[in-house]
């Protein structure tokens, strides 16, 4: 992909983000922060590439470290969001 295509995706995603986030109800702003935290750990993709590659041991260990950190965030972020959202569900009854 050339730089302009990537930039286009980025700019359009910023607009999507803008409208989607404004539609989030203020009551769910804390879960919003927790879940954005979890999804921003998609940088685990970069961490996995570094950890999987042979060649540079330094890079491999940095990658593995990043995999640990991102995993904490992914599992912790989604789990804590689920826990909070479950509290909102009980009210339905």
């Amino acid at each position: 992909m050339d730089f302009i295509s990537i930039l286009s995706i980025f700019v359009l995603a910023c607009f999507v983000g803008y409208y989607v986030v404004w539609s989030v109800t203020p009551a769910l702003h804390t879960p919003l922060m927790a879940v954005t935290n979890a999804i921003s750990s998609v940088i685990i993709v970069g961490a996995l590439i570094a950890a999987a590659a042979a060649g540079s041991p330094g890079s491999k260990w940095l990658g593995l470290g990043a995999v640990v950190l991102a995993s904490i965030n992914i599992f912790g972020g989604f789990a804590v969001t689920a826990r909070m959202l479950a509290m909102y569900q009980k009210k339905g009854r």
Binding site: I9, F10, V11, A13, C14, V16, G17, Y18, V20, V21, L32, M33, T36, N37, I39, S40, V42
Partner: peptide, 9 residues
């Protein structure tokens, strides 16, 4: 996409 979403959020 995620970065833009989280950044905007």
């Amino acid at each position: 996409i995620t970065g833009a979403l989280v950044g905007a959020s």
